[in-house]
Design a protein around this nucleic acid. Sequence first.
RNA 1: CGGGGCGUAGCGCAGCUUGGUCAGCGCGCCUGCCUUGGGCGCAGGAGGUCGGAGGUUCAAAUCCUCUCGCCCCGACCA
Length: 481
Amino acid sequence: MDGQEGFVEHIASKAEDFSQWYTDVILKSELADYAPVRGCMVIRPYGYGLWENMQAHLDARIKATGHRNAYFPLFIPESFLRREAQHVEGFAPEVAWVTRAGSEDLAEPLVVRPTSETVIGYMYSKWIKSWRDLPVLINQWANVVRWEKTTRLFLRTSEFLWQEGHTCHRTAEEAEEETLRMLEVYRSFLTEDLAIPVIAGRKTEKEKFAGAVRTYSVEALMTDGRALQAGTSHNLGQNFAKVFDITFLDQDDELRHVWQTSWGVSTRLIGGIIMVHGDERGLALPPRVAPTQVVIVPIMPPAARETVLAVARDIQARLTKVSRVDLDAREEYSPGWKFNEWELKGVPVRLEVGPRDIKAGHVVLVRRDTGEKTTASMDGLEQAVRDLLKAVQDGLYSRAKRFMDENTHRVSDYDEFKAVMETKRGFVYAPWCGNQGCEAVIKEETGATIRCIPLAESPRPGACIRCGSRSNLWVYLAKAY
RNA sequence: CGGGGCGUAGCGCAGCUUGGUCAGCGCGCCUGCCUUGGGCGCAGGAGGUCGGAGGUUCAAAUCCUCUCGCCCCGACCA
C-alpha cells in the first residue's frame, strides 16, 4: 500500500461527494453517532472532548470580559414565548412542547427552550431594581431544542449544545458596545483557537434574530464554498425589557427599561472545524482544541518490543508536561493501520519511535496538516513538539485564510455573480442598495443570501449588484448552511 | 414541507424483476499461531424473527396495502 489512493478507503472522497464525506468523517472518527430519536445525535467521547476544549477556551474569554456563568431552566411557560411578537413568530414553528406530566395534562403547556431570552428576562425583572445593579453580565452553557425539519450532524440537530450570554445595560450605547465586544470575542476565538478565519459583520433586517434590534455575526467559509454562520451577537434594544418589565431606577430618579444583548455559539462550530480543515484523509483538528495533540506510535518488532515500549512510555511522560499525548501501544493493529486511524481522527502530530530511531537517538515527527515528516532529537523533544503544535495551528489557519481569500470574488455584474454561485461558489463581495426586494430576488435567483455587512470595510461608492442603484453598502453574499 | 434514494449480521452490500436449497458475500468481532517503519498473513469460530403490521398464496426477503425510520438535494433555521 504505497499509493495515495489506498490510504482512506473507508470514507467517501471529499472532492467527489462532500456531503457523504462529511457524514463519514464524523461517524468513522467517532465524533458522534445517530441517536434513536429522529434528528438527535450522541456526541461520543472524542467529540465531547473536543467540545470541552472549545468550551474551556471560550469560557475563559467570556469570563475575561467580565461575565459569570449561571443556569436557567429547560422549560419555559408558553405565555413567556408569546410576549414578544417577533420572537414567537420566529421560533414557534420549531418549538417542542410538554403538555402532560404522568397522566395529567399541565395547566399551562411548557415549551422546551429554543433559546432563553424570555425566561432569563423574567428573572432579570425580579433581580434588577437600581442603576447600581447594572450591568448584568451572565452566560449559560446549556442545551436547547429546535425541531428542525431536516437535520445534519452538528450543523442542524433537534437538540444542540451551546452557550448563550444575556446581558442588561443602563444605556443603548453600553448595550451596543457589549454586542460588538462579544462579536470580537467570537472572532478571536474562531481565528486564534479554532484556526477558522471569519468575516465579522452586521446582519440585514431580513436575516436578524427574531426579537433583536440589530444582529451581528461571524461568517466562515467552508471548503465546499458554502458559508457557515459561526456565531451571533444580538443587540436586543428594549424589546424584551418592555415585555418583561425589566426596569431600574436611574440616578436621576427616573424609572427606565434596561438595554439588553444576547449572544451565542454552538456545537455547530464542530461542523465548521470539520468542513474548514478536513481533507481526503479525514479530520484535521487545530492543536489548541484537539483532544489528543500528539499520538505516539511505537514500532515494535517482537525482539525489540520491551525496549521500544520503555522508550515510548518515557517519551509519553515527558510530553505529558507540554501537551495532551496518547500512546497507542495496541498490538492487534499494525503501525500503518494506526497511521491511517489517527489521521482520520485528525490528531495534529504523530510521533513514531522504533528500533532504528532509538539507535539514532531521535524520533520521527509527522504533522497532520501537511504530512511533512521530520526527525527530532531526544534532547529537547518537548520544545520541538511545542513548536510543531504551534506550526500546525498556524499552518491550518493560513491555509484556511488563503482559501477564504481565494474564494472571495469581486464580480462586475449580476450574470457573473450568478455564474460564480453556480460553479465555484464562495463569498461574493459586492455593493447592495439596501432594498429588501433586491435581497429577496438575489436569494431567489442565485441561492445566495447576504451573509453580513462587514464591519471592517470603509464605504465607497458602487452600484448595487442586482439593480444598479448607487450605494455605499458593500456586503458579503454566499450560499449558506 | 417539496423532489430523489434507501431499510437483509456490528458496518457495507448481493439476492427481489420471473415467489419454492436465498439466509449469502466482504469487512469487522472471538480463539490460536504469526507479523509490525503506511490499513499483515494463516487456521478455526460466533452472529440475522430480511425495519414493523396486515394481506395474497400450498409457500413471501421477494407480490400488494398501510406504517415507522434514515440519507441526499431544495425551502427554513445556530
